[in-house]
Amino acid sequence: MKSVVGLAAILAASVALPAHADKLDDIISAGKIRCAVTLDIPPNGFRDDKNEPAGFDVDYCKDLAKALGVEAEIVETQLPDRIPALMSDRADVAVASTSDTLERAKTVGLSIPYFVYKQVVLTRKDSGITDYAGIKGHATGGVAGTFEGIQWENDVKKLNDSSSTYRAFQGQADAVLAVSQGQIDATPLINTMAEEMIKSGKYPNLVIAGDTPYVPDYVTLATLRQEYGLINYLNLFINQQVRTGRYAELYKKWIGSGDPVDLTIKGVYR
């Protein structure tokens, strides 16, 4: 018995012995940062004509890598897979429009907002839906576990009407495809992507039917909950991106003209 205890003590000590290197150290010593990026939400993340990752989030990751003095590696993840990618150590940081919900903050560490979306209603021209209230009586769907998907589902449940249904897809592309194919009639979508899609002319049968009544969707960079060093670094990095004008530059490059959206919230500290 004694020897077992002794052995356990030695094992415990050997685990505890190495000086604690946190994720920030790991990234710097590995010389590479792995960013989980979602590539089916153009213009924030997509694959360009050469099938290479491109968009606001991809550039943001590259900027972060440059600031750290390391290489950037893009790890493609579907929206519901972003956090699992962090938890399973496939990625160091999620640069993938992660909304800062309180539920998520129980499990992952979220930075200050680096972008903010409005959520709009995407529908087909022939669906007869003209605004958010119009989704009553329609089959609808969204992406599993997203900020907008969860609120939309709750609102559909509140309608308490068997013909108003909600389906959860595992990627933004599938949800949009389901609308355009007619399996569902409407889906919530971030404004930047909806506008980009309509502009591209690839979806002649889709229209934006107004905004959703949700509060602005502040999105953050996400990493593991206990990585304070990295979270601090990310917060400062986001601040610097805005301060140096790089945020405005990226906004102009990917999202469009006009003032970049304001990342601050009036009346409260973060």
């Binding site: 089916d40 694959r47 790890v75 993840t77 897979d81 990618a85 496939r90 592309a173 355009s180 690839k202």
Partner: peptide, 19 residues
């Protein structure tokens, strides 16, 4: 499902582009 791009996943991403 665990993030590996195989035949079906790459078809999905082609579907996204070609509709």
């Amino acid at each position: 499902w665990i993030g590996i791009t195989e035949l079906l996943r790459s078809s999905q991403s082609i579907v996204t582009r070609t509709q």
